[in-house]
Computed example of a mutant assay.
Amino acid sequence: MAERWTVGIDKRMCVRTGLCAASAPEEFELDEDGQGHARSAILPASEEVLEVAESCPIEAIGITNADTGERVFPPPVV
Rank of each mutant, 00 (worst) to 15 (best):
T6E: 14
T6A: 07
T6S: 10
T6L: 11
T6H: 11
V7P: 03
G8E: 14
G8D: 08
I9C: 04
D10L: 13
D10R: 07
D10V: 13
D10G: 05
D10N: 12
D10S: 12
K11R: 11
R12G: 15
M13E: 12
C14Y: 07
C14R: 04
C14D: 08
C14H: 00
V15L: 13
V15N: 09
V15S: 08
R16L: 13
R16T: 10
R16P: 10
T17W: 14
G18T: 02
G18A: 02
G18I: 03
G18C: 00
G18Q: 01
L19C: 04
C20S: 07
C20I: 05
C20P: 07
C20Q: 09
C20V: 07
C20N: 03
C20D: 10
A21F: 01
A21M: 01
A21L: 02
A22Y: 04
A22W: 06
A22G: 11
A22V: 09
S23R: 14
A24D: 02
A24V: 03
A24S: 05
P25E: 03
P25G: 06
P25H: 09
E26T: 04
E26D: 12
E27K: 08
E27I: 10
E27D: 15
E27Q: 14
F28A: 01
F28L: 03
L30M: 13
L30G: 05
D31H: 00
D31E: 08
D31C: 01
D31Y: 02
D31N: 09
E32D: 08
E32Y: 00
G34Y: 10
Q35W: 12
Q35H: 08
Q35V: 06
H37Q: 15
H37L: 15
H37G: 14
H37P: 13
A38N: 05
A38Y: 11
A38I: 10
R39E: 04
R39N: 00
R39W: 03
R39Q: 04
S40C: 07
S40K: 08
S40A: 06
A41P: 15
I42L: 03
I42M: 04
L43G: 02
L43V: 05
L43I: 01
P44D: 09
A45F: 07
A45H: 00
A45C: 01
A45Y: 01
S46T: 12
S46R: 12
S46I: 10
E47Q: 11
E47D: 07
E48D: 04
E48G: 00
E48H: 00
